[in-house]
């Protein structure tokens, strides 16, 4: 019993350590190759880009923690939609930065509510519901944005790219967000309920947890964070573009899996999101420095995802 116990604890801690360790090793390999040149810039850039994966990764992680079949495919569409709407309404005016944020979050909340409404009303698996709604939302974003890239207000652009001693301010904020969401996960009734549902939905219901409400709140959270990410990314990259969310569908799931969260549900790993996001960016940087083509970079990313999930294993056969 004792050793099984230790092993379980060890396994529960290992995954995110591995992600950070891997990120560190990849960074080390890169700077050895460049003989130390640009080591700080690489880290700084990695922090900047990892930030956005982490924001959507947090939402996706909460959703995936709800258990098998739960995944939010509408994240990219929500990002694009929230980015487009908020940029257009702010119309590059600094005074509108806060209202713009509220609008972006509101777009997310609307999508999240719609997603859960579909899950409940049509009694369809979340994947199908978020897939269908992503079609609608993406379309709305295209129609609304009309393909024109509207610049963000200078203040927002400044904020999202500001660095304190080389460390992106946004990354510091998102570390704070991750800590906050970690507290929510472990020390609030909501967070406990999410992990309980993911481990055993029926047991959660019989323990008095209102499963429906918690699932609703979780899809809402995921979509709101996607809205936030769309807002910030638009500021960071000089405006909302129509395919700005595209890579975040796979990225949001990938950072969750590599970060050590259980795909079978019930166990999430917040620090791992950061480790995984940094690792994925640094890996690409390393392969770039080595002069490998985009093809090899993608193949290696894919092999790592498949490798991680194969080692972590699936849900045990009952």
């Amino acid at each position: 019993m004792e050793s099984a116990q230790n092993r379980l604890q060890a396994v529960s801690r290992l995954p995110w350590i591995w992600a950070f360790l891997a990120a560190f090793l990849v960074w080390l390999a890169t700077i050895i190759f460049t003989q130390g040149q640009g080591s700080a810039q690489i880290l700084s850039a990695a922090l900047s880009f990892a930030t956005f994966s982490v924001i959507v990764g947090i939402g996706q992680m909460y959703v995936i923690t709800l258990g098998p079949g739960n995944v939010d495919l509408s994240i990219p569409a929500t990002m694009t939609f929230a980015g487009a709407v908020s940029m257009k309404i702010m119309d590059t005016q600094d005074a509108m930065v806060l209202p713009g944020l509220v609008i972006a979050l509101g777009c997310g909340a609307a999508v999240g509510t719609f997603n859960f409404g579909l899950i409940r009303a049509l009694r369809i698996p979340p994947i199908i519901a978020t897939l269908s709604s992503s079609f609608l939302v993406q379309s709305a974003a295209i129609a609304y944005g009309r393909g024109i890239k509207i610049k963000p207000p200078p203040m927002l652009a400044e904020f999202t790219t500001y660095r304190i001693a080389g460390v992106p301010l946004l990354a510091i904020c998102v570390v704070g967000l991750a800590v906050l969401m970690g507290v929510v996960l472990h020390r609030t009734v909501y967070g406990r309920s999410v992990t309980a549902i993911g481990q055993n939905q029926r047991a959660a219901e019989l323990a008095g947890i209102s499963v429906g409400f918690i699932r609703f709140a979780t899809y809402l959270l995921s979509a709101v964070l996607a809205g936030l990410c769309g807002y910030l990314l638009s500021g960071f990259s000089g405006g909302a573009s129509l395919n700005m969310g595209a890579e975040y569908l796979l990225a949001s799931i990938a950072v969750v899996v590599i970060g050590g969260t259980s795909v079978a549900g019930g166990f999430s790993n917040l620090p791992g999101l950061w480790g995984a996001a940094l690792f994925m960016f640094l890996l690409v940087t390393m392969l770039n420095t080595f002069g490998l083509s985009a093809g090899f970079r993608l193949i290696l990313t894919g092999v790592i995802i498949v490798g991680v999930i194969t080692l972590a294993g699936g849900r045990k056969q009952s």
Binding site: V183, T188, V189, R192, T195, A196, N200, A207, G208, G266
Partner: peptide, 28 residues
Amino acid sequence: VDGVFPIWSIALNMTVSSLRRFVRFGII
């Protein structure tokens, strides 16, 4: 099937139905 949360500790399994009593400012 109906009771145990297999990933959790004994303590977390015991308190899951009583959490609301311990909440102060949203935090358990």
